Amino acid sequence: MNKITLVKRMLYAMAFLSCGTLVYAQVAIGKGSVQNSSISLEFGNENRGMVLPWVTSAGAVAGAVEGTVVYDLSDHKVKVKIASGWKDLSVDLTGTTIDPHNATVDLATIQNDVTTENTDAAVRIGTPTATPGILVLEDANKAMVLPRVASPHLNIINPAPGMMVYDTVAKQLAVFNGTVWSFWKP
């Protein structure tokens, strides 16, 4: 392969990768496609959950809009932003970021030591706006379908702190605070 062809291929690859964070369509993760046109993001049906962003303190999240969901390292709880403040979704008080399989490893320390957060980094699905966040679903007429797991407390072998799924057996939201699952029904 000559140098010109190699340079062209590298330029094409760089151009493709630099555009990779803007997605204007529906996204399926772990499956071929989404179920219908009302879904912006949908996950496959394996025994896996979605791990929420870990933040030092939910109160310190600048510009959080209603519906923002995080795992708060200050008290080891999953929280959602509502009009009056942050609502606790981890009703159990014993949350942790310690790896249950290796009690000497604090996962929060590993996360914070590995790299410095890029506050400009974001993936946006839908029509881009100025809404802050790591993963922002910006469609006004589409929703996200959480990973769907039958009895996650029994079937997810090693859940991560801040994991969220929809329990298909109990028909409810399930969040893991690092120690126990909390379940929410509408």
Rank of each mutant, 00 (worst) to 15 (best):
M14A: 15
D106A: 13
G44K: 03
V27L: 06
V61I: 12
I4S: 07
T119N: 14
Y166V: 10
V70E: 00
T104W: 14
G67L: 05
L52Y: 06
V70Y: 01
A62S: 12
L22E: 09
S38G: 07
V69W: 00
A60C: 02
S182F: 05
D120F: 14
D99L: 05
G133S: 05
S40H: 06
A170T: 12
V123P: 00
D75V: 07
V180W: 03
L135G: 06
A25M: 07
M164Y: 00
D75Q: 08
A13R: 11
S57E: 13
Y166S: 08
M10N: 11
L89I: 07
Q111Y: 01
T131C: 06
A60G: 11
N47D: 06
V169T: 15
N47I: 01
G20M: 12
I82R: 11
G126C: 11
A60T: 05
T119K: 13
K87M: 10
I82Q: 08
A150M: 08
V91K: 14
K171F: 09
T97Y: 02
S84R: 05
L107W: 03
E66T: 15
V169I: 06
G85Q: 09
E42D: 05
G95Q: 08
Q111S: 09
P132G: 12
L52H: 03
G44R: 04
D72H: 06
L173S: 06
A122W: 00
A83C: 00
V165G: 01
H101Q: 14
L89C: 09
D120K: 11
V61Y: 04
G133V: 06
S84Y: 04
V91W: 09
I156L: 02
A130S: 12
T68E: 07
D113Q: 15
T115V: 13
